[in-house]
Design a protein around this nucleic acid. Sequence first.
DNA 1: CCTGCCATCGGGGGAACCCCTGACTCGTCC
DNA 2: GGACGAGTCAGGGGTTCCCCCGATGGCAGG
Lengths: 212, 212
Amino acid sequence: MKTVRVLIVDDHRLFRSGVRAELGPSIQVIGEAEDVESAVKAIAELEPDVVLLDVHMPGGGGQEVLRRVLGSGSQVRFLALSVSDAAEDVIGVIRGGARGYVTKTISGTELTDAITRVSEGDAVFSPRLAGFVLDAFASTEAPPIDPELDSLTQREREVLRLIARGYAYKEIAKELFISVKTVETHVSSVLRKLQLSNRHELSRWATARRLV
Amino acid sequence: MKTVRVLIVDDHRLFRSGVRAELGPSIQVIGEAEDVESAVKAIAELEPDVVLLDVHMPGGGGQEVLRRVLGSGSQVRFLALSVSDAAEDVIGVIRGGARGYVTKTISGTELTDAITRVSEGDAVFSPRLAGFVLDAFASTEAPPIDPELDSLTQREREVLRLIARGYAYKEIAKELFISVKTVETHVSSVLRKLQLSNRHELSRWATARRLV
DNA sequence: CCTGCCATCGGGGGAACCCCTGACTCGTCC
DNA sequence: GGACGAGTCAGGGGTTCCCCCGATGGCAGG
């Protein structure tokens, strides 16, 4: 079993050394950071396997770190570590891309275990926190009927469907046995009716409504 | 500590009595059901604290039970119990409103513990299964690392991410402080590496891997 | 019958996209 | 020092997309 390289991000020095002292031999702490700036910098330089991330920090907090690091295409895995068990915090960092969330009441051996699992791609949770995520998840599924979709004609819906699948105009024309120009006309009126500006937005609009 | 009243829903009689035998004294099995119809009926009559729900059953499976029971305003808590560890199954029942998902490889004591926690409002997961939920929920990154995604450079991944979001080249250029020509270069190499032919396919490729 | 609405087809123009080639800076590795 | 990859920029050429015009035929409603 190879050792897991970990970066600790927390604004309290005492806490950081506490974590260091408690972690098992399979975890190698390769660095620390105490604010958003230094965290982003350290992650880019050290490329840790797992980042232990405090949620509440000066300069935007853990979510800001997530946004900047994952936003730039990094594959680093984050384990959020916080005193808070508030739903907003938990959901916020999970949405931000963290692969786990444990509270600071956790024991050293449990934390070691959690880090190891996150490094292997698992998601780790204090069970009582997982409830928040599930609630938010189940409630994100509200498919309201679209009055806008109703305003489209049959033909326009067919074209929309193919657009959403990534077809080029030429391909759509062949598929529907009409000319490219007609396809353009339909697309134009769809864009106008839905108040969108290009086929990419249209694509996203359609997939968001699951009509692909 | 008060005992937890449990209903077992599974289409295999032998499995049901196995669960009965293995559960600890703090769990009281108040009934069993072997299909969707009898399960819905039993839940309405017995009002258990927790329903142990098999995912795959004749007559619509566990999801049908969830739909009918929770749809009618019941507050019963469900713990899904399945041989399957497929992402569709896990996500499906969680979306349906189950508060936990464990595989049938679980031990009796672990199951007892899981039932107790669910009855207290927690969510319980085999950690490796929680990953599926988080992927679908946070829609950030897939843990099975793509060999193809790996072949992309850091910069190419950033561009890919913005493409997938529907940004025009000009907007990407502004966002990353580089020229449009450079964006084109990156897009070209991404397309070549992933063997795709245009930005629409790229968009679909990215969303399929949940990196938007 | 005339007025919309829908579907079809075109021209022309400008922007965006895709490819190919070439070139320059950095680092890293040998 | 030289080779190499990553990142940056540019020119040219072809395709696709989007929008502005206009035009025809069909079909429903007042």
